Amino acid sequence: MNNQLKWERIQGIVLDAVGTLIEPTPSVAVAYTQAAARQGVRLDVEEVRGRFKAAFRSDLVEGEAGFLSTDEQVERRRWREIVALVLPEVPDPVRAFDELWDHFGRPESWRAFPDAAPAVEAIREAGMKVCIGSNFDSRLHKVVAGLPELADAVEVIVVSSEVGYRKPHAAFFEAVCGRLGLPADRVLSVGDDLENDIQGAHRAGLAALFLSRDGDSGGLPSVAELTAVAALRAAEV
């Protein structure tokens, strides 16, 4: 696998959403802890954080098309299972799921990273197409539309539940390239998840750039902030 980033070929960029452009506020762990508290269950935030990480990485819910396949109903089942695993103590798990599903579908439950809007603007000014590509569901459209930093900046949003497959499946990246109207080798994937955004993109023929806000890139082509993406291109082309 050739991980060398050839900027002169890049004409479009797909940016991951959660952890790259946006983050939940309050954090996922706090939101889950608050949902439990509303049912009289007091939990430690750090314990909930650990449970969520384990549940999120190990879920096995998939659609009828097999591994990594999804749709809107699959995503609801997947998140219902995650909530049950993270909050087994709550007396009414259906209520907890409904509250959290609604919570994370509201724009006010999210914030754009400070570098998100400047990065998107710089990418567009550099003459490259840009889209958001996320393992999410249809709620993401409302979330992005409600964040002024992104609402008018990114017109194309590719969501796994609408594609039918979640990252890192090649079909997801094929859909991204189709929406951008570019071949895979002309598209750069930028995100904070090594498997979903980097390795999956490489396997599908895209270039990839790891967003490592803590500076730990593992030797991969990386940036510590999104505004460095367009700056790197300007410096290397």
Rank of each mutant, 00 (worst) to 15 (best):
M1P: 14
M1S: 15
N2Y: 10
Q4F: 13
Q4A: 15
L5S: 03
L5I: 09
E8H: 15
I10W: 00
Q11E: 14
L15F: 14
A17C: 05
V18W: 05
L21S: 01
L21I: 05
T25Q: 14
T25Y: 14
P26F: 05
V28Y: 15
A29C: 07
V30Y: 09
A31W: 04
A31G: 06
A31M: 06
Y32V: 02
Y32A: 02
A35K: 03
A37I: 07
R38G: 08
R38S: 15
R38K: 12
V41Q: 12
V41F: 11
L43G: 09
E47W: 07
E47F: 07
G50E: 11
R51Y: 04
A55W: 04
F56W: 08
R57E: 14
D59T: 11
D59C: 09
D59M: 11
G63E: 02
A65D: 12
S69E: 03
T70K: 08
T70G: 11
T70Q: 10
T70M: 10
D71Y: 02
R76G: 09
R77D: 14
R78L: 15
E81C: 10
A84M: 06
A84I: 04
V86T: 03
P88C: 01
E89P: 03
E89F: 00
P93T: 00
R95F: 06
R95T: 11
F97R: 06
D98T: 10
E99G: 02
L100Y: 02
W101D: 14
R106F: 04
R106D: 06
P107F: 05
E108M: 02
E108R: 05
P114T: 03
D115C: 02
V120S: 00
E121P: 04
E121G: 12
A122P: 01
A126H: 00
M128I: 02
K129W: 11
V130A: 10
V130W: 02
I132N: 07
G133M: 08
S134E: 08
N135V: 08
F136T: 10
S138D: 14
S138M: 12
R139S: 07
R139G: 05
L140E: 04
L140V: 00
L140T: 03
K142V: 14
E149D: 13
L150C: 02
A151R: 15
A151W: 10
E155F: 05
V158M: 05
S161D: 05
E162P: 05
V163D: 09
P168M: 01
A171C: 03
A171S: 09
F172T: 08
F172Y: 07
E174A: 11
A175H: 05
V176Y: 07
L180K: 04
L180Q: 06
G181Q: 11
G181P: 11
P183N: 13
P183W: 09
D185H: 13
G191Q: 07
L194C: 05
I198F: 14
A201Y: 11
A204S: 15
G205S: 12
G205N: 10
A207S: 15
L209T: 03
L209S: 09
L211P: 04
L211G: 00
D216P: 03
D216T: 12
A224K: 13
L226F: 01
A228K: 13
A228I: 09
R233N: 04
A235Y: 00
A235V: 01
